[in-house]
Design a protein around this nucleic acid. Sequence first.
DNA 1: TTAGATGCAAATGTTTTGCATTGCG
DNA 2: CGCAATGCAAAACATTTGCATCTAA
Lengths: 150, 150
Amino acid sequence: VNDLDERHRHLARYVSSRGLKMTRQREVILQVFLEGGKHVSVEELLARVRAIDANIGHATLYRTMRLLVESGVASEHNFSDGATRYEPAEDPSHAHHDHLICTSCGAIAEFENPDVEAIQEQVAREHGYRLTHHRMELYGLCPQCLSRTT
Amino acid sequence: VNDLDERHRHLARYVSSRGLKMTRQREVILQVFLEGGKHVSVEELLARVRAIDANIGHATLYRTMRLLVESGVASEHNFSDGATRYEPAEDPSHAHHDHLICTSCGAIAEFENPDVEAIQEQVAREHGYRLTHHRMELYGLCPQCLSRTT
DNA sequence: TTAGATGCAAATGTTTTGCATTGCG
DNA sequence: CGCAATGCAAAACATTTGCATCTAA
């Protein structure tokens, strides 16, 4: 709610600092994206955006999502379904989270586990890498689908 | 080398058990795939396959890779570059491995860490999921790129 | 002999790009 | 006003599919 304001300011600063411009379309997309919950695909976003302004083109949406990712407002995921999904970027002060994905119904649960984060740093160090980010996804059957199968 | 033989037999068994057929094309693709090292993309495979038999179509390659995955000979990965990559499936008796990917040069290193595997099971249990597989990728700068930057 | 496999071309789905026009700063 | 952004259509990719033809079993 005022998360919107905060991220709006963040984006506005990023945009103006680079000589870019804040447009009506970008405002709409940012708003829809932040309201839209987690793990939204581009086609889902496009539908909601067009409910507000039917003239917004998909090229603009793709370009804007790239901008949101670059500016740190959004983060990008590629689960195993061929479409890129976005979610609001996490506040760096919060713990990183990863995903549990149901292979049957597609439900996505989140978890965070400090041990995993620690081990990752350890592994990277052993191989001489400096980590920037990572991705961890667990695939399986969610409780609902499990009980439905049994 | 006789890994080829072993996997060849495995595939042959899978194929015949389902009433499918072993073809010249499938032999070539299997051979190239197994020789081809790790994390090969379809376009890389296609080039090598066509060096042996220039008439093999990309549809056949895609169809065959799907077959190799289904039969358990290959496993599939989607790193962040839009193209599906394949590597020989691991022997289930071996520990599962994950990947470290250099964001600068694209180098891919492998690692295995039993602690991670244990934690994953733990997390899945907490959420009531039954895991089938997972994916863990660490992105960062490899030692070479790090020293080049410094 | 016959169902499955192939090769080609065309279709699909996702994302990008060229370009004339619009609009923010 | 000037440069960035938009919208559209077309292009660019990766992958799949329809279909006539070929071939392994």
